[in-house]
Protein backbone atom coordinates (compact mmCIF):
# COMPACT_ATOMS: atom_id res chain seq x y z
CA UNK A 1 0.00 0.00 0.00
CA UNK A 2 3.05 2.20 -0.22
CA UNK A 3 1.98 3.48 -3.57
CA UNK A 4 -0.65 5.71 -2.11
CA UNK A 5 2.16 7.72 -0.59
CA UNK A 6 3.01 8.90 -4.06
CA UNK A 7 -0.39 10.37 -4.64
CA UNK A 8 0.09 14.02 -3.88
CA UNK A 9 -2.36 16.81 -3.23
CA UNK A 10 -3.42 17.87 -6.70
CA UNK A 11 -3.42 14.33 -8.06
CA UNK A 12 -5.45 13.10 -5.14
CA UNK A 13 -8.35 12.13 -7.37
CA UNK A 14 -9.50 9.02 -5.59
CA UNK A 15 -9.26 7.03 -8.77
CA UNK A 16 -5.55 7.71 -8.77
CA UNK A 17 -5.25 6.15 -5.35
CA UNK A 18 -4.56 2.69 -6.60
CA UNK A 19 -2.62 3.52 -9.75
CA UNK A 20 0.76 1.88 -10.02
CA UNK A 21 3.35 3.81 -8.12
CA UNK A 22 5.57 6.44 -9.65
CA UNK A 23 5.04 10.15 -9.94
CA UNK A 24 5.81 10.05 -13.68
CA UNK A 25 2.90 7.75 -14.36
CA UNK A 26 0.54 9.68 -12.16
CA UNK A 27 1.37 12.95 -13.89
CA UNK A 28 1.32 11.69 -17.44
CA UNK A 29 -2.27 10.56 -17.17
CA UNK A 30 -4.97 13.25 -17.20
CA UNK A 31 -7.51 12.95 -14.42
CA UNK A 32 -10.62 11.03 -15.48
CA UNK A 33 -13.54 13.22 -16.52
CA UNK A 34 -15.98 11.45 -14.21
CA UNK A 35 -14.38 10.84 -10.84
CA UNK A 36 -16.81 7.98 -10.20
CA UNK A 37 -16.01 6.16 -13.45
CA UNK A 38 -14.84 2.55 -13.05
CA UNK A 39 -11.16 1.74 -13.38
CA UNK A 40 -11.02 -1.70 -15.02
CA UNK A 41 -7.25 -1.59 -15.49
CA UNK A 42 -6.73 -1.03 -11.81
CA UNK A 43 -9.18 -3.81 -10.93
CA UNK A 44 -7.24 -6.23 -13.12
CA UNK A 45 -3.95 -5.12 -11.70
CA UNK A 46 -5.04 -5.44 -8.05
CA UNK A 47 -6.57 -8.83 -8.70
CA UNK A 48 -3.48 -10.01 -10.60
CA UNK A 49 -1.10 -8.73 -7.96
CA UNK A 50 -2.93 -10.60 -5.22
CA UNK A 51 -3.47 -13.87 -7.07
CA UNK A 52 -0.05 -14.01 -8.73
CA UNK A 53 0.43 -17.44 -10.28
CA UNK A 54 -1.92 -19.21 -7.88
CA UNK A 55 -5.17 -20.76 -9.05
CA UNK A 56 -7.88 -19.38 -6.78
CA UNK A 57 -10.06 -21.98 -5.08
CA UNK A 58 -13.75 -21.30 -4.93
CA UNK A 59 -14.22 -22.80 -1.51
CA UNK A 60 -13.01 -22.04 1.99
CA UNK A 61 -13.89 -18.34 1.83
CA UNK A 62 -17.38 -16.96 2.35
CA UNK A 63 -18.71 -13.54 1.59
CA UNK A 64 -22.13 -12.26 2.66
CA UNK A 65 -23.75 -9.10 1.37
CA UNK A 66 -27.24 -8.02 0.42
CA UNK A 67 -28.39 -8.77 -3.12
CA UNK A 68 -29.92 -5.29 -3.27
CA UNK A 69 -28.15 -2.30 -1.74
CA UNK A 70 -30.83 0.20 -0.80
CA UNK A 71 -28.23 2.45 0.75
CA UNK A 72 -25.21 2.42 -1.55
CA UNK A 73 -23.36 4.64 0.92
CA UNK A 74 -23.03 1.85 3.47
CA UNK A 75 -23.30 -1.67 2.10
CA UNK A 76 -22.55 -4.31 4.72
CA UNK A 77 -20.01 -6.92 3.58
CA UNK A 78 -19.05 -9.86 5.79
CA UNK A 79 -16.10 -12.10 4.85
CA UNK A 80 -14.67 -15.09 6.64
CA UNK A 81 -12.42 -18.07 6.02
CA UNK A 82 -14.21 -21.32 6.78
CA UNK A 83 -11.07 -23.49 6.82
CA UNK A 84 -9.67 -24.36 10.27
CA UNK A 85 -7.24 -21.68 11.45
CA UNK A 86 -4.19 -22.84 13.43
CA UNK A 87 -0.80 -21.36 14.31
CA UNK A 88 0.67 -23.12 11.29
CA UNK A 89 -2.21 -22.75 8.86
CA UNK A 90 -3.85 -19.37 8.85
CA UNK A 91 -5.02 -16.62 6.57
CA UNK A 92 -2.26 -14.12 5.92
CA UNK A 93 -4.08 -11.60 3.83
CA UNK A 94 -7.59 -10.90 2.62
CA UNK A 95 -8.78 -8.22 0.20
CA UNK A 96 -12.20 -7.01 -0.93
CA UNK A 97 -12.54 -5.66 -4.46
CA UNK A 98 -15.45 -3.65 -5.82
CA UNK A 99 -15.07 -4.31 -9.53
CA UNK A 100 -16.67 -1.13 -10.90
CA UNK A 101 -15.79 1.37 -8.19
CA UNK A 102 -13.37 4.16 -9.12
CA UNK A 103 -10.92 2.67 -6.64
CA UNK A 104 -11.63 -1.06 -6.80
CA UNK A 105 -9.45 -2.20 -3.90
CA UNK A 106 -11.91 -1.52 -1.07
CA UNK A 107 -9.68 -2.73 1.73
CA UNK A 108 -7.01 -5.17 2.84
CA UNK A 109 -6.77 -7.25 6.01
CA UNK A 110 -3.53 -8.78 7.27
CA UNK A 111 -4.11 -11.40 9.95
CA UNK A 112 -1.61 -12.73 12.41
CA UNK A 113 -1.81 -16.39 13.44
CA UNK A 114 -2.61 -15.11 16.95
CA UNK A 115 -6.08 -14.01 15.82
CA UNK A 116 -7.15 -17.65 15.55
CA UNK A 117 -9.81 -16.57 13.04
CA UNK A 118 -10.02 -14.74 9.75
CA UNK A 119 -13.29 -12.88 9.78
CA UNK A 120 -14.37 -9.29 9.31
CA UNK A 121 -17.39 -7.20 8.43
CA UNK A 122 -17.14 -3.72 6.96
CA UNK A 123 -19.33 -1.33 5.01
CA UNK A 124 -18.62 -0.15 1.49
CA UNK A 125 -19.85 2.68 -0.66
CA UNK A 126 -20.63 1.53 -4.15
CA UNK A 127 -20.84 3.77 -7.18
CA UNK A 128 -23.01 1.36 -9.20
CA UNK A 129 -24.34 -2.20 -9.50
CA UNK A 130 -21.42 -4.60 -9.81
CA UNK A 131 -19.71 -7.74 -8.55
CA UNK A 132 -17.76 -7.80 -5.31
CA UNK A 133 -14.78 -10.13 -4.98
CA UNK A 134 -13.09 -11.36 -1.83
CA UNK A 135 -9.67 -12.99 -2.06
CA UNK A 136 -7.78 -14.65 0.76
CA UNK A 137 -4.18 -15.87 0.79
CA UNK A 138 -3.48 -18.68 3.22
CA UNK A 139 -0.12 -19.30 4.87
CA UNK A 140 0.43 -22.31 2.61
CA UNK A 141 0.14 -20.07 -0.45
CA UNK A 142 -3.35 -21.13 -1.46
CA UNK A 143 -5.60 -18.36 -2.71
CA UNK A 144 -9.33 -18.54 -2.01
CA UNK A 145 -11.98 -16.52 -3.79
CA UNK A 146 -15.66 -15.62 -3.28
CA UNK A 147 -17.81 -13.38 -5.45
CA UNK A 148 -21.27 -11.92 -5.43
CA UNK A 149 -23.18 -9.55 -7.64
CA UNK A 150 -24.98 -6.65 -6.01
CA UNK A 151 -27.62 -4.31 -7.39
CA UNK A 152 -27.40 -0.72 -6.27
CA UNK A 153 -30.88 0.74 -6.00
CA UNK A 154 -30.24 4.46 -5.89
CA UNK A 155 -27.62 6.47 -7.65
CA UNK A 156 -24.88 8.34 -5.88
CA UNK A 157 -22.84 6.71 -3.20
CA UNK A 158 -21.75 9.61 -1.07
CA UNK A 159 -18.15 9.33 -2.20
Amino acid sequence: MKRRDFVTGSAALGGALMLPSGPARAQSRPPPANPLAPNPAEFKRAMGEFVGTARPLESGLKMELPVLADNPGAVPVHVWVTLPITESHYCKELIVLAELNPSPLACRFSFSPAAGTAEAAVRLRLSQSQTLHALARMSDGKVLVARQAITVAASGCGM
Binding site: M1, G14, L17, M18, G73, A74, V75, H78, I85, A98, N101, P102, S103, P104, L105, A106, C107, R108, F109, S110, F111, S112, A114, A115, G116, T117, E119, A120, A121, V122, R123, L124, R125, L126, G158, M159
Partner: peptide
Protein backbone atom coordinates in the same frame (compact mmCIF):
# COMPACT_ATOMS: atom_id res chain seq x y z
CA UNK B 1 0.17 -9.45 20.27
CA UNK B 2 -1.02 -8.11 16.94
CA UNK B 3 -4.30 -9.72 15.90
CA UNK B 4 -4.76 -8.09 12.52
CA UNK B 5 -4.57 -4.87 10.55
CA UNK B 6 -7.16 -3.37 8.26
CA UNK B 7 -6.22 -0.93 5.51
CA UNK B 8 -9.32 0.82 4.19
CA UNK B 9 -9.41 2.43 0.75
CA UNK B 10 -11.72 5.20 -0.35
CA UNK B 11 -14.54 2.70 -0.98
CA UNK B 12 -15.03 2.19 2.74
CA UNK B 13 -18.15 3.97 3.99
CA UNK B 14 -17.95 7.05 6.18
CA UNK B 15 -18.10 6.46 9.94
CA UNK B 16 -16.12 3.28 9.31
CA UNK B 17 -17.46 0.15 10.93
CA UNK B 18 -15.32 -2.88 11.57
CA UNK B 19 -16.45 -6.14 13.05
CA UNK B 20 -13.96 -8.93 13.72
CA UNK B 21 -13.40 -12.01 15.82
CA UNK B 22 -10.44 -13.48 17.62
CA UNK B 23 -9.76 -16.55 19.74
Amino acid sequence: TLLFTWEPGISIAQNPYIEFTFA
